[in-house]
Amino acid sequence: MLALAIVIITAALIFYSIGVWAERIQRTLTWWHAAMFALGLACDLTGTILMTRIAADERADGIAQNAAGAIMAWSGTAAIALMAVHLLWAVVVLLRGRESEKTAFHRFSIVVWAIWLVPYIAGAASAMAG
Rank of each mutant, 00 (worst) to 15 (best):
P119H: 02
A104Y: 04
T30P: 03
L13F: 14
A38W: 11
A64D: 07
V92T: 09
E99S: 04
I49T: 05
T77N: 05
G69S: 03
I6P: 00
W116R: 07
A84R: 08
L88V: 13
M128A: 11
W21M: 12
V91A: 10
G19V: 04
I6N: 00
I18N: 03
T52M: 10
A56H: 13
R53H: 11
I63T: 07
L87I: 09
A104W: 00
A34M: 04
L50N: 03
R27D: 01
F105L: 07
G40N: 05
T52K: 08
R53V: 07
I18V: 15
A5I: 07
A68H: 12
I71K: 01
F105P: 03
L95I: 15
L82N: 12
W89P: 02
T10H: 13
V91D: 01
I110P: 12
A70C: 01
V112G: 06
E99C: 02
D57N: 08
Y16K: 07
A35I: 13
R53M: 12
I25M: 05
V7A: 02
L4A: 14
W31Y: 13
I14G: 02
M36Y: 13
M1F: 15
T30F: 06
W74Q: 06
A124K: 09
W89R: 14
L45Q: 07
G69M: 03
I49W: 08
T46N: 02
E99L: 08
W31T: 06
L50C: 04
Y120L: 10
L29D: 01
L41I: 15
I80T: 12
L29H: 04
R96Q: 12
L2P: 06
G19M: 04
W113V: 09
G130N: 06
L39M: 11
A12C: 10
L88N: 09
S75P: 07
A55H: 09
W31E: 09
M36W: 14
L87A: 08
L50M: 13
N66A: 05
V20S: 03
